[in-house]
């Protein structure tokens, strides 16, 4: 059983992550009254990009080439540590949440440095915004995870998420609900979605993540797109694993519930993107700090048993 689940958790992410992107796009298309691309479109895009050549800027160095490779590799490694709801991940140890944050941090730093390596003013702008928002998100994420650890009294992600069942929800609903709200904010910021960043905009001046990868093409772009899909999946697992407290002993059932929940999350994101506008850049910090404050409230509420 342990062997099955240890393959199930990363494998499901590897295969299904691009599907989340497809679901978001499909929901947005439907709400806008369009048919929308088929669900396999992201896979087709990836396959096409992998076969293409590349153009590298003469300004760039080895760091530019390291960016996409490292950011995808860290996302893949994080897939080994983050649990799929009640299904434990293959690698878990006390403090693994710090290691996951470390992996994300490495991937982000290399992406930022690769963007700055081009010397492009646009990419510098994107990198500047990325590090600003990332610096504010990190405390919020730590606070949310701290509240989960404090509620479940478990020191690793897999054991903490394993302990989030229906009984815990009925005992500590306010805390877990507030943490879920924080994680949703973190999810939207980290994945550069509306209301923080608009992944489909065509004006470079208003972008964050997309503008940082302007100079990447071909295989590199495929790596970046796939890595972004994986990040959508990984942070989604942190949120959905908390919100969907299905904890039967059967890993297939638990896993399926969380995957269904991830599809639901993708629909929610599509809905948010269809109904909300992007915030002004100056107002994004208030959103992130507000998200962090929710986790702080969760912690205080959790203190009063």
């Amino acid at each position: 059983m342990a062997l099955i689940s240890s393959i199930l958790v990363p494998a499901s992410g590897l295969v299904l992550a691009p599907l989340l992107v497809a679901v978001i796009n499909r929901v947005k298309a439907r709400i806008a009254g369009r048919q929308g691309p088929p669900l396999v479109q992201p896979y087709r895009d990836l396959a096409k990009l992998l076969g293409k050549g590349a153009v590298y800027s003469t300004t760039t160095t080895w760091l530019f080439r390291a960016g996409p490779v490292v950011s995808l590799a860290t996302a893949l490694a994080a897939l080994l540590i983050v649990p799929l709801g009640g299904v434990a991940a293959p690698v878990h140890f006390t403090g693994d949440l710090v290691a996951v944050a470390g992996l994300f941090g490495l991937g982000r730093f290399l992406t930022v440095v690769a963007a700055l390596d081009t010397g492009s003013p646009f990419e510098g702008m994107g990198a500047s915004r990325e590090v600003t928002f990332a610096a504010l998100v990190e405390p919020a994420l730590f606070l949310a995870l701290a509240s989960i650890v404090a509620t479940t009294r478990m020191g690793s992600l897999s054991s903490a998420y394993g302990a989030v069942d229906a009984a815990l929800w009925s005992a500590a609903a306010p805390t877990l609900g507030l943490v879920a709200a924080t994680l949703l904010v973190v999810y939207l910021v980290e994945n550069s979605r509306i209301p923080v960043d608009d992944p489909t905009t065509h004006l470079e001046l208003t972008m964050i993540h997309e503008v940082m990868v302007l100079d990447h093409s071909g295989v590199d772009l495929a790596f970046i797109e796939y890595g972004a899909a994986l990040k959508l999946w990984l942070l989604g697992m942190l949120l959905v694993g908390l919100v969907v407290p299905v904890r039967t002993a059967n890993p297939w059932l638990d896993g399926a519930a969380v995957i269904a929940g991830l599809a639901g999350l993708a629909m929610v994101v599509g809905l948010i993107e269809s109904t909300m506008a992007r915030l002004r850049m100056n107002n994004v910090p208030a959103l992130i700090v507000g998200g962090g404050v929710l986790a702080a409230v969760a912690f205080v509420v959790g203190l009063n048993p």
Binding site: A173, T175, L178, V301
Partner: peptide, 15 residues
Amino acid sequence: HLLEILLALSLVFNF
């Protein structure tokens, strides 16, 4: 439990 949820909600309202 209802009371707790209500109080947590009102804390959020304050913020």
